[in-house]
Amino acid sequence: PFMRSVMEAPFPAPGRTVSVKSFLPGTGNEVLTLTRPVDSRLEHVDFDSLLQCLSVGRLLQVFASLLLERRVIFIADKLSVLSLCGHAALALLYPFTWQHTFVPVLPASMLDISCSPTPFLIGVLSPCLPELLELPIEEDLNRQPSDHQLSYCRPINVLTLTALSLTFCICIFSEDQVDLSSLVSEAFVRFFVELVGHYPLHMVESANGTKELQRDNFRKSHPSRGVRQLLQLFMETQMFAGFIQDKEMRKGTGRGLFEMRVVEYLESYPEPAPSGVNKFLKGLGDLCKFFHKSMTDLFFLIKFEVVL
C-alpha cells in the first residue's frame, strides 16, 4: 500500500510537499508528508572527479558544448569515472536542465547511438574507442570549432574562467575546510546570473493571465555585445525554453541558490539607457547635478581655507 501511494502521488515541485498513506502493523494507517528539496543541485555530485580528469580549459569547452546543446562523448577506463563525470558535467548547467539524451555508460552493443544527429551526453569505456572511431559519426562531432563558433564561447570563457580562478584561490588560501563542489557550483551559478539574471525584468503578463518573456528586449538589454550574441543562440535551446516555462509554473515556491543570487543581482542592475527626449532631460538633470556638486565642493573648499 505504501509503494502504491507513493507511485500514485503527483511528483511535487521543488519546495512543495506531498502526502502519502502508510499502513504500519499495530498502529494502523499513518499519513507521511514528503517534501522535495528546493535546491538539490549538489545531490550525488562530485566535481572533484571532473576537475581531476579535465583541465579548466577543457572543462569550459565541455560546458560551452552542453550549454549550446551539442554532442559530447566522455571516454574513460572506469565505469565510476564516467558516471561521476557525466553527472557532474550536467550539474554545471544549474539552474537549467539538460533536455536531451544522457547515458552515463553506454554499452558496447549500443554504440550506434553516437551516430544520432540530436544532442547527447554519453560515456564510453576506453576499450570501445577503436570501434567508436570506425562508426560514421558526423564530422562536426570531432572537428575543431571555427573562429566564428569560438566567438560565441568567449563570454563563457571570460566569465566562468574568472569565477573559477577565484574559486581555486579560495581553496588554496583558505585556512578552513572548504567544499569544492559548492564553490565550483557557485562559480557557474554566477555565470548564469550574469547571463540571464535580468529575465524577471522582461516577463510580461499575456492575455490569458500567464507571463511571457519579451525575447528581443531581454536579449538587447544586456550591455555586452558578446553576451547578446551568445544569448541569441542560447535562447533557441530547449534548456532555455524549459527554464522560462518552469519559472512560470513554480512562481510562489521556495527560492534556490540561483533565485537568491538573481535578487542580489537585480538590486545592482544598471538602469536602461534613455533615448530621445528622455535622454535629453536626463542629460540636463545630470548637468544640473554636476553644477550643484561643483558649487557644493567649492563652498566646502572655500570654507575649509577660511577656517585654516
Results as ranks from 00 to 15, higher is better:
L60G: 00
I122H: 06
L90R: 01
F120D: 00
T118C: 02
S65Y: 08
R71M: 03
T27S: 03
L150F: 11
E138Y: 03
D39G: 02
H87L: 02
A76L: 08
A76H: 07
D77P: 12
K21F: 14
A76P: 00
V31G: 06
K21E: 15
E131Y: 12
T35R: 09
F102R: 00
K21R: 14
V103F: 03
P127V: 13
E138V: 06
I156R: 06
E43P: 14
L106W: 06
L129C: 10
V62S: 05
L90G: 00
N29Q: 01
D140P: 12
Y152D: 07
E134D: 11
L34A: 08
R58T: 15
E30N: 04
P119H: 01
C128V: 13
L32G: 05
R143Y: 04
S80T: 09
G86M: 08
S65Q: 07
N157V: 15
A88F: 10
F74N: 03
L166Y: 11
D140W: 06
L166C: 07
S83A: 04
S22W: 07
F96I: 06
L164T: 07
V105K: 06
V124K: 01
M110Q: 12
Y152E: 01
R70Q: 10
K78F: 13
H100T: 03
R41Q: 12
E43N: 14
S40P: 00
P117A: 06
S114R: 05
S165G: 15
L161F: 12
D147C: 12
E138P: 00
W98H: 01
R143P: 04
L54P: 13
L161H: 14
E139F: 04
T118M: 00
L111I: 01
L82P: 02
S55T: 15
L59W: 15
L93G: 13
T33R: 07
D77Q: 14
V56H: 04
L32T: 05
P136V: 02
P145C: 01
V31D: 12
E43G: 11
F63H: 07
V45M: 13
C153H: 10
L133P: 11
P136C: 09
P119V: 08
L51C: 03
C53T: 05
E30L: 03
S151Q: 13
W98E: 13
I113M: 11
L51N: 08
A163M: 05
R36W: 04
R41C: 15
L42D: 14
L66D: 09
L135S: 03
S114L: 04
L82G: 05
P107C: 07
